[in-house]
Nucleic acid binder design. Structure first.
Length: 153
DNA sequence: GCCAACGTTGGC
DNA sequence: GCCAACGTTGGC
């Protein structure tokens, strides 16, 4: 089983949305970056994902969700009325993928970015590097463990 | 709101 | 294929 980290703006879809409907599968759509998409295509059902809240008041890791459906064509790319519409995408050759995620755990507190930056286990993780914009990234077992360990403080 | 860092686009 | 211009991300 692999581990991942995904960024989200909690105003759009945050850990509380997952926690309030713990049985629901949420479609994770709208990813429009090739590197992030390629990582999504590697996700398998059962993989755990650290949810990271960005562009908000409390920036940091917020909880765990899990993959319940592997990558499939993101329907928004075909919808001309969607902000995620991509006219260069076709049904036979879709460019963008979505996955389904559901709730696993909400951390007792948001672990702030400033604290994540102090963890030596995360020194090589794209998340804490300056200027990083990658919204979906793999986590090594050690990185995942280090993030979970912060919740025990 | 500012702005640095980054990815993408498009002219050449 | 290069690279300047542009739009976006995302912390502060």
């Amino acid at each position: 089983m692999n581990h991942w980290l995904m960024k989200t703006e909690p105003d759009e879809l945050g850990i509380d949305d997952f926690a309030h409907e713990p049985q629901r599968d949420f479609m994770w759509d709208g990813v429009r970056n090739y590197q992030a998409r390629n990582f999504m295509r590697s996700m398998q059902p059962g993989d755990h994902v650290v949810l990271y809240h960005s562009s908000c008041k409390h920036i940091g890791t917020a909880g765990i969700v899990k993959v319940t459906r592997a990558a499939y064509a993101d329907p928004e790319q075909f919808n001309p009325d969607s902000a995620y519409y991509d006219p260069k995408s076709s049904a036979t050759e879709p460019r963008w993928d979505a996955v389904d995620l559901c709730f696993v755990d909400k951390f007792p507190r948001i672990i702030p970015l400033s604290e994540l930056k102090t963890l030596s286990a995360l020194a090589d993780c794209a998340l804490v590097r300056k200027g990083n914009r990658l919204s979906v990234m793999p986590l090594s077992a050690n990185e995942y463990k280090a993030i979970l360990a912060t919740t025990n403080r």
